[in-house]
Amino acid sequence: MRQGEAPPDAKWTGPSHAGVKAPEPIVIADPTVRFASTARRLSKLADGHPMEAWLYFMATLAQAQHTVATTLAPAVALNQVDVARAVEARLPPLAADGHRRDASWRDGLALLLDSIDGREWPPAVQEAIELLRSSDAATLEKLADAFLRGGLGHADAGVTVFVVAALQVYFSGSAARLAASDLRLLEERSLCPCCGSPSVSGLITATGITPGTRYLYCSLCSTAWNHVRAVCVTCGGTRKLSVQGIEDDAGVVKAETCGECHTYTKLLYQLKDTQVDPYADDLASLGLDLLVAEAGFARHAPNPLLLVGDGEAVAE
């Protein structure tokens, strides 16, 4: 995963006169809430959905993440000096592809597997669980490195969803130990200022001091950061942007497409549904991804929980 190059010198450079409120540039997630919210939303969205079985599986996985986040809470506390040094060096302090992980993430993986086991999952899921349980520490670390550095092989795809889920809990817990005020938005605004990972989706707020603000949500550490609307997340272009949606649906999730770089990103509208979740609603709107892809647009970054496919193995 690429890292940003240069953070801005200040937290906000917009208007400062009386009556104009600036959005918080960075919001650190609470891991004791984040995964439970995603699990509840997935369970709600799964009911009657064409991919109902798969979404229920993902809801179960998110609930297992919540169990790990609230009981074991795997994480690492970064030294304040190291955080300041990283920000000064124009790097995210919890850089996904450079951070030295604490062994507690593997304990989190073991608890996650225990939490999700015991149900009648398809053979492929059970095989993946047993394979991970029988793997030694070196193998698990190798799988984690391969995912975080973009070198995951097809042969490892079956176990990736569980490794990713465990890493999300670990990085979210680690990010929660940082103060947003110590971080800075990166010059490459499409990347998380905390861990340098790409976003999974963008949420347009309907509440707070600055409704209508777009926040991108990190695919790994759950941090949210402000990104200007009507600007392409991938290339920064503004001339050929268009918002696409599925005809006659509720309009909660749409795709912002860019005719300059031919990529798209998801937009989630809180005004249309106050319970919208940047992670759950992204997974439940795969139909929109397919339609936009057929129109010739590539997603700006993949959802890491989808690297194993589209859920057919679970849904069958």
Results as ranks from 00 to 15, higher is better:
303 N>C: 15
83 V>N: 04
273 D>N: 15
172 S>D: 03
116 I>Q: 04
271 L>D: 11
89 A>N: 12
194 C>V: 05
134 S>N: 09
45 L>D: 03
50 P>G: 06
181 S>T: 15
140 L>D: 08
293 A>W: 01
24 E>Q: 13
237 G>V: 06
174 S>P: 12
62 A>C: 03
22 A>W: 04
173 G>L: 05
175 A>S: 14
236 G>W: 01
107 D>I: 04
110 A>N: 07
118 G>M: 09
184 R>A: 10
58 M>H: 11
36 A>V: 06
20 V>K: 04
183 L>H: 13
309 G>Q: 07
174 S>M: 11
2 R>V: 13
116 I>R: 09
12 W>V: 10
262 H>V: 08
46 A>H: 01
190 S>F: 00
195 C>P: 15
44 K>S: 15
80 Q>P: 15
167 L>I: 09
268 L>R: 08
238 T>V: 14
155 A>Y: 00
39 A>W: 01
107 D>H: 05
174 S>C: 15
264 Y>K: 05
128 A>G: 09
124 A>D: 15
112 L>P: 02
41 R>T: 11
247 E>M: 10
44 K>E: 10
175 A>R: 00
7 P>I: 03
4 G>D: 01
80 Q>A: 13
110 A>H: 04
226 N>K: 14
70 T>I: 06
250 A>P: 13
313 A>Y: 06
145 D>P: 07
2 R>D: 12
274 T>D: 04
240 K>V: 12
219 S>C: 13
287 G>P: 11
264 Y>D: 14
215 Y>A: 05
258 C>V: 08
116 I>H: 03
97 D>P: 13
